[in-house]
Nucleic acid binder design. Structure first.
Length: 318
RNA sequence: CGCGGGAUAGAGCAGUUGGCAGCUCGCCAGGCCCAUAACCUGGAGGUCGUCGGUUCGAGUCCGACUCCCGCAA
């Protein structure tokens, strides 16, 4: 029995929080070459109706495998603890906190981050939404070495997926999340074995996306129908897109650009029926509303909605 | 005990001061038409979320419970 390099197990410290990080963490747990020594995740937050404390998905998965869990408010005081864990590698996927420089240099293979966009495009937290909202033809994930600037480290490898006029946030989130689970371990293997070189990003081409706020989902019907459609696809299910009809909140879950524009004397935001579709007049073109949700109601198709809310026709959405 | 909305036909909703359970759509049968997400005629389909209370009488008023949802996170 001879021991080759491949038989050495890599001690990993994993940092992540939401559902998006789960496939990556699972891949590391299930791979015999890696040992997840500990997990850092955000603190449990009171959420849901009734203020119950809810554990982040990463914590729940770590508990299942009896992996030690740390949930500090800040990493600035964690240097000693991480030294004690003594990881060969830190893997960060959607952790939600910035790593101090002093921690970046602790593991011998560095700190590796999986980011949900094709860097240097869309540095920041809304990286999944931005490509959809902007109508890009592709997006993807970037596996990179973390440096002192946010999402600006040199890239080990990138993986693309194509976007089309149907792609919504849920699709991009799930696809990229699954993809990261598939490619993380092979990429790390290559990195550790010296088969990959980290290529610096072209900072000139970098773009940044701000953290999304609820108000970003307020629909401005003066905009063109295609632009509004992209916003709806890029923001659902979270933070969601909404408008008001007669001062009541209506969430717009899914829409579709009307195939042709009728020349009608309608006000912007006015609701009408076009071939049985609930349709809204936009600044440019019309938009079919396919799925929506009213206050206290479940998500329903606009067809179902019309059956009991005939008075919506002729109202102006604001 | 964070705030609030809701449960009525397959779907979406209305139901007033308690007094025969309604509307739109769908479904079934038939009709009309070159044609339609169109129109006409007829029909089926409900233990009004659950349990208890008040009452001559409760979808409606009172109490408890279950489930669903919005805000907030």
């Amino acid at each position: 029995m001879s021991k080759s390099n491949n038989d050495k197990k890599i001690n990993v410290l994993f940092m992540g929080t939401p559902e998006f990080a789960i496939p990556g963490l699972k891949a590391l747990i299930n791979d015999p070459c890696y040992i997840v020594k500990a997990v850092y995740t955000k603190i449990d937050k009171p959420q849901g109706r009734g203020k119950k404390l809810n554990a982040p998905p990463v914590k729940i998965l770590a508990q299942k495998y009896n992996i030690p869990i740390y949930q500090p408010n800040t990493l600035k005081t964690e240097k000693e603890n991480i030294k004690k864990i003594n990881p060969d590698l830190i893997v960060v996927i959607a952790y939600g906190k910035i790593l101090p420089v002093e921690i970046l240099e602790l593991p011998r293979y560095g700190c590796i981050n999986v980011h949900g966009s094709l860097l240097p495009l869309y540095r920041g937290s809304a990286c999944l939404n931005a490509p959809i909202i902007n109508g890009d033809e592709k997006t993807g994930i970037s596996i990179m070495k973390i440096n002192e600037k946010m999402d600006a480290g040199p890239i080990l490898k990138q993986f693309e997926i194509k976007l089309n006029s149907d792609s919504n946030l849920e699709y991009v989130h799930d696809t990229l999340s699954q993809l990261s689970g598939q490619v993380l371990v092979p990429t790390l293997n290559d990195w550790i074995n010296g088969k990959l070189k980290a290529k610096p990003q072209d900072d000139e081409k970098a773009t940044y996306v701000k953290m999304l706020k609820k108000e970003d989902g307020r629909i401005d019907w003066r905009k063109g129908a295609p632009e509004i459609d992209r916003l709806i696809r890029g923001l659902n299910p979270w933070p969601g897109t909404f408008t008001y009809a007669n001062h009541k909140l209506i969430k717009i879950i899914a829409a579709q650009v009307a195939p042709f524009t009728k020349k009608q004397k309608l006000k912007i935001g006015e609701v009408f029926l076009d071939s049985g579709n609930l349709t809204v007049k936009c600044g440019q073109g019309n938009l079919f509303i396919l799925k929506l949700q009213i206050e206290s109601g479940k998500i329903m198709s606009s067809r179902d909605f019309i059956k009991g809310h005939n008075n919506i026709i002729g109202q102006i959405l604001k």
